[in-house]
Nucleic acid binder design. Structure first.
Lengths: 141, 141
DNA sequence: ACCCAGATTTAGGCATACCTAAAAATGATC
DNA sequence: GATCATTTTTAGGTATGCCTAAATCTGGGT
């Protein structure tokens, strides 16, 4: 299995904190498909980096820096997920691809994509464009 | 520095083979910003995987499987690069982001993006759409 | 044919993120 | 408050991809 990045851990911790009040080792392990000892190790690392507070046997809590990172990740994730959905990528696939892209996008590209999304969904021209793309796809089939 | 993937090595080897007739250890090392011994090691791995033929002291040559992978990567790269350029992402950034995305895109999303690109650049509706997006951006500024 | 500069490989290490098995802590139940 | 099932951590190991320093190969110039 692939190596997990700091960002993936931060995302899961954020999710668990919201859903369950706290982020326990075992729950994190299940979520990212890794064994608990690996999580313990990573949590220490994340704490050294100032992204979480880690309490032995209790779990992790995001610091302000960690929350900042989590918010940023969510923004990036939503941007890609929405874009892919608009372009007709099937839900599950759009999700998993967004999960990949979110970790690799530059601020500039992100900004441009957000603008494009805004255009597509909010402006009349944009909506017309999406409709036209829908037609275009049918013809290609 | 980040770890280099099989795909990055294959891309560079392909490029060097075209540009210089062959892919030597040192040239590869320079291209991906790694020291020569690391390249030797990876070349052996790539050979075990059947992607290249590796001749000691001479360099690497793509096998048919390796060429296949290189072609596929190029297709993916071009798709993202073109899309980002169309959306107005500055050239250098579009390039480096495409370099990231190309390694993480699913076939389905790729296909959809290609279709969308085709729509944007080839159909009248698509070109109108791009023009409208251009206007939209100006207003946002 | 020999020598030498430059390129490449060998040898030996380091860091990271993962693993399993065993030990320790926790907290729910009696 | 002792017991025990569950969770977590500790201890020790593996694989990967990178590094430096030292040895080795190669090809051009004489």
């Amino acid at each position: 299995m692939r190596k997990k990045t700091t960002e993936e851990y931060i995302e899961i911790i954020c999710l668990l904190e919201r859903r369950e009040g706290r982020a326990q080792t075992g729950r994190i392990a299940d979520a990212i498909n890794v064994k608990p000892p690996s999580v313990t190790e990573m949590l220490r690392k994340l704490e050294r980096e100032g992204l979480i507070v880690y309490e032995s046997y209790a779990g992790a809590t995001l610091t302000p820096a960690g929350e900042e990172m989590a918010r940023d990740l969510q923004r990036r994730h939503r941007t890609f997920a929405e874009l892919l959905e608009l372009l007709g990528v099937e839900g599950e696939t759009a999700e998993t691809d967004a999960c990949q892209f979110e970790h690799h996008v530059s601020p500039e590209t992100l900004e441009r994509l957000r603008l494009f999304l805004e255009f597509l969904s909010k402006s009349p021209d944009g909506r017309r464009c999406l409709a036209a793309f829908g037609e275009f796809q049918k013809q290609e089939r």
